[in-house]
Amino acid sequence: MFFLIIKRILLGLITLFIVSLITFVGTEVLPGDACTTYLEREAYGAALEACYKRLGLDIPAHERYLSWAYNVIQGDFGYSLSGQMPINEVLGPRVKNSMVLASAAIIIGIPLALILGIITALWRDKLPDITISTVTIFAMTIPEFISATLLILVVAIWLEWLPGIVIVPTDVTVKELLPNIILPVIAIAMIMTAHMARMVRSSVIQVMASDYVQMAILKGVPYWKMVFKHVLPNALLPAINVVALTIAWLLGGVVVTEVVFNYPGLGRLVIESISNRDLPTVQALAIILASIYVSINLIADLLTLMLNPRLKTLQIRK
């Protein structure tokens, strides 16, 4: 077990290294750089040279990568080119904002998805299943930029209940942020919940058809006891990994929703720094998002391992 954790962490670190390499090479081969963007038409001659010198772009690429990597390991992502401030300071509030958005979506979405998934499975092909399944499939198929825009149109513009876009400074407190996040959370949670509910449904249905559930019925186990003792623990195990992927997606990748609502989170920062050719920030974001993915998946795998007696003994025997 201990050995396995070490092995997985090492593998995760290798993944991160490869990600950093790919982003570095990728940004390097693209035409244009921070100085040409910053200087626009004056990007020639002495002004350009001076800019390169100031930003350290005159050093060979591999040396730049090494010194950058060395600093990253120590927790220093360097300076943002466009904002002219340490990236750590740019990232801090953004990470916090994204965390607020993601946790709100998770707190609402995961329990809701479990409940809906279980209801649809237990009442399979009956009215509750048909209604909920229709709604979830609908929610799954609408892209978030459409559902988000519709939400703004109905709730913010027609009904005027909530603000349509988020107009707050980046370093706002959580308390001030709260009323603003309601609509983005709904937009995100809709898709996420629908996906997870479908997944839980099929998993529960599969377990309900198994020999051991039939055996439990024939043993005289009351229905709800059977559901909670024999069905759910076995049905929800495979759901852990899906939940993990969803969380990882939430923390990093809700780019579209953040842009639509003008939400000051990591996703919008990704878009901003790419269009500004702010390469150090792009690299920092890539590393951060990749480590979120890697660590959340690692946690999910270990959780599955701990909860599944079958896998547990297999590992010990090895």
Partner: peptide, 8 residues
């Protein structure tokens, strides 16, 4: 083997 619930 399949009729005994695996997690109990």
């Amino acid at each position: 083997g399949q009729a005994l619930t695996p997690n109990l």
